[in-house]
Design a binder for these strands. Structure first.
Lengths: 201, 201, 201, 201
DNA sequence: GATGAATGAGACTTCATTCAT
DNA sequence: TATGAATGAAGTCTCATTCAT
């Protein structure tokens, strides 16, 4: 009965998200109009407002969806590779994220563009601490198991993620300051330097 | 004769830059119209186009002016404090920049907002390598003098600046993940970890 | 069986009328959307069209319902006060209407708003000459009984009602040109001047 | 130099007012879009906003212009007809206004439509008390000269104008309750009844 | 050079109405 | 009957840019 209607709604929602993702990735968000989004989605303009308050409401939903996808995919691969050493594990996980981003520069571009709005950080917070996938907690547990010590592990994680996220963009997108495959070792090295600080004496 | 005309031009230019800076700092750049800028500057709308191609042309000029000011001010203080140790020197310099930004969150906000346009990085490049003030070169020289070694000092500097710039913003502006005075030690510590990697054995 | 269905319909109809009345009274009618009305009534949007052709169809029904209520209530009180003198009687009746409107500025506002549509007058015509309550006829009969004479009693009644209705609004709502309790004597006096013209010599 | 620009501006303003007047007179104001107005005026849409804040801002300007025209024209004719008697004078003046309105039902319709917005009364207040043409003051002076007495002449004037304005509309436009030429005697009679109340004993 | 009135494309948003369920 | 998701026309308003003065 109702299921047909619900299916339909879900499909429209996905069409909107998909179209917006594509457009947001290829242009500055403020240059993407709602008209563009609905045209691309093949949906009437009024319908947009049944699903989102405005462009930025949609953007928030997209950020959640896309960043969760990246982290979960990376974490899945990490789990499949029974890595025991703490530093190696973190590096491996970050590397997985970087590989995903490198191969999917659409996501990278989109996430980077989103930074401009200060909206990413606050949404990212939620993603990282989601009930079903709490990266912060996992990080803490691994530290404990490994005998490392950080005065404030959350802060350390924040700094690392910020550094990686910020530095990889221009390398992947513009080959600056180096092409990414040359740049990555330096970046992962920097991560390792920070982690190593917490190594057990 | 001519000088009066030139002075006049320079004054108008500065009025435009100052007004734009004020406006760009307090709101999203795409919400600042050229009308707003010229109104604030007390200049006619048509005149704007005698000095800049469009809003983003002006923004580029602003970024150059403002970031150069910050670096030069910090470097001046650094010079006045005859610091000999390499790590201490870099930390001191970065700290000076952070102090300036903390006390002048207008500049911080403006620089951060500019990131959104991807325009900052490319302009920053120029600033860091300006003939009259080449920070990259200075960094290399200090490394040499100190006996440290980095496979690629430029990359290291890039990573550090990116990390610091990216991480300090949300802390200064939103007290996230910690208020800045609590956060700064962690951040400088991370910098030191990276630098220490290059210490002579 | 059937009665339950009919009850249901009547209830929905009343819900729509009540909600619309409330909304029409508090804002300009053209700013009230059908969405607003059905939301307030707790009824689905499509259902609206089962009862009314559009917003203005509903408005007409409302005008009839509300103005009839006012006149009937005033007339009831008039009947209970066995007033013999003709002029006194008309003044008394008008005063009752004014008292009702003064105490129920919602109705006043609604009726006034409706004037804007030119739709009120034509509906009012019907109300005043309704089979079950024919005010025009009553007025004529009273004139006859009292020995007064007007060349055209209907016209006189029309002018009086128009004057009273038009003048009382700004006084009740905006205290202009005077607060209503101060203004009313002047208004009733003007009515009496007009009536007195028809007094028997 | 400047005069050409100023002329141009004045012309645009008048084009807008004239077009709006025409449209407002033939349809409900809320059904007239700004698009309609500028199209009729042969002016770009953006230009509208250089002259008026919105449609209702323009409407206010129109009301002032049009009602002042009517009163001034009627008053001019009144002056040319050296009428000595007070009652006759007022009746004559009102009659002139009615003649103008009857012959120019566009203005009548427009003024009536404006009533719906409650905007007319407040603007009318200004027009009647304008420095260069203060009808209220003229009315008071005439009363004094003639030896009549009203407790509150302003209120009496208000009631008369309201009554006339309100009653004449449906008669002129819809021949209800009578065609205007038949209705007018009754209306002027009602006015005279009210005025006569203040006659010296 | 400097001005600011004029332009008109286009962005956002609302809403009456339809129609499949 | 009743529902409410979907539609898309139409409205308001902004703003970068031009150009006559």
């Amino acid at each position: 009965m109702k299921s047909k209607v619900l299916e339909n709604k879900k499909r429209k929602l996905d069409q909107l998200l998909d179209s917006a993702f594509e457009l947001f990735s290829s242009q500055d968000i403020q240059n993407v109009s709602i008209s563009d989004i609905v045209k691309q989605a093949g949906i009437a303009k009024g319908t947009f407002y049944l699903y989102f308050k405005d462009k930025y409401d949609l953007q928030k939903a997209l950020i959640k969806r896309e960043s969760r996808r990246v982290f979960e995919e990376a974490y899945q691969i990490y789990l499949e590779n029974d890595i025991r050493d703490f530093e190696d594990g973190v590096i491996f996980l970050i590397n997985q994220v970087l590989i995903i981003l490198e191969n999917n520069s659409i996501i990278l571009r989109f996430i980077h563009k989103s930074l401009s709005w200060g909206v990413f950080d606050s949404e990212l917070k939620d993603v990282l601490r989601d009930d079903s996938f709490n990266l912060v907690e996992l990080f803490k547990q691994d530290i404990e198991k490994s005998g490392y010590h950080f005065d404030n592990p959350e802060i350390t994680l924040f700094i690392i993620l910020d550094m990686v996220g910020s530095a990889c963009y221009s390398s992947i997108m513009d080959d600056y300051p180096l092409p990414f495959n040359e740049f990555k070792p330096y970046l992962l090295n920097a991560v390792r330097s920070i982690l190593h600080e917490g190594a057990p004496k």
